[in-house]
């Protein structure tokens, strides 16, 4: 992969924050989910959005996620062997639709999706596609040792 995010300064780390350069998704996570809460405040009456209960960690792993990964392996397969019935555009299309089923638009990523949900006050739980998993602590394996 050659297309890397390389911000000014030539570093490998994408930088943000520190008074204004953050994106909306970053800001939402910081200021809606964290920070000091004073119970007695007249918080809600003046506020147009439902904010008191935001679960920042939404979906652990859903069918949509699985389909997204399946497409990703399929894409490797296409690159690797030059076969298969779809071209890349179709695949990408499929991925986006699969990844955003029932949401407003396929181009939104998960973070922005979340923001939309919050700002729209539309916290519908999405209980069905949450497939709550036990934390998986398998025997440790060095994931990074790929010298094969």
């Amino acid at each position: 992969m050659t297309v890397a995010t390389q911000p000014a300064g030539g570093g490998y780390v994408d930088r943000g924050g520190g008074g204004g350069s953050s994106g909306l998704a970053d800001v939402v996570e910081l200021i809606l989910d964290k920070g000091l809460v004073i119970d007695v405040f007249v918080r809600v009456s003046l506020v147009g959005i439902e904010i008191l209960t935001i679960d920042a960690r939404i979906v652990v792993a859903s069918v949509d996620t699985f389909l997204r990964f399946a497409e990703a392996t399929n894409r490797l397969d296409l690159y690797g062997e030059g076969k298969g019935g779809k071209d890349l555009t179709q695949l990408t299309q499929g991925m986006m639709e699969g990844g955003a089923k029932g949401k407003t638009s396929g181009v939104l990523d998960a973070a922005v999706d979340k923001v939309e949900e919050i700002l729209g006050g539309n916290r519908n739980g999405d209980g069905d596609d949450e497939d709550e998993r036990e934390p998986r602590r398998r025997p440790r394996q060095r994931a990074r040792e790929r010298e094969r």
């Binding site: 792993a61 996620t65 699985f66 399946a70 392996t73 998986r136 440790r140 994931a143």
Partner: peptide
């Protein structure tokens, strides 16, 4: 495809923990 993706997701989660 769901099953395939699930295997990939699981494998990824294992790596992620480490």
């Amino acid at each position: 495809r769901v099953k395939l993706g699930e295997i990939v997701a699981k494998a990824m989660e294992q790596r992620r923990d480490v």
